[in-house]
Design a binder for these strands. Sequence first.
DNA 1: CATAAATGTCAATTATGCTTTCCATTATTT
DNA 2: AAATAATGGAAAGCATAATTGACATTTATG
Lengths: 65, 65
Amino acid sequence: MKNRLEELRKARGIRQEDLADALEVSRQTIGSLENGRYNPSILLAFKIAKYFGMTIEEIFIDEEE
Amino acid sequence: MKNRLEELRKARGIRQEDLADALEVSRQTIGSLENGRYNPSILLAFKIAKYFGMTIEEIFIDEEE
DNA sequence: CATAAATGTCAATTATGCTTTCCATTATTT
DNA sequence: AAATAATGGAAAGCATAATTGACATTTATG
């Protein structure tokens, strides 16, 4: 599961910590998502999509055959 | 987090067990999702969306303020 | 009504999302 | 170069997603 988090965050010129605060998660959670260490819960995915004004599908890329 | 799983499954005239097989999860997982006992992982949400040919947002309803 | 099919649900277990804490590495600025 | 800011990442712990198995209940069919 890839995602465009880092790209979208940088386009807004904010730090991981700022995004973390906005989403009410820890900075490590943002870092871990950006670097693909784990996938977000569906609730966090919805929060992220809402924050960026996009759909989950536009941010998270499902890569199954 | 509400969802339209039961409605969509019944519209296709299939059993929980059939949907479970198609999604490669247990029948209990489908039942638990339909009855709101827990939320799906984002990977399962993507699988479900793909199965029904819909987006995650069309199937799962985020109910935050 | 009786039988079987489908679903509900509980308990126990495993996997993982997310946390905090801590330290290392990589920019950035002075 | 030195100091600070920002990010990377590991470890331990907690909460919950997801599993299987077993059994109860509901719904459909003979």
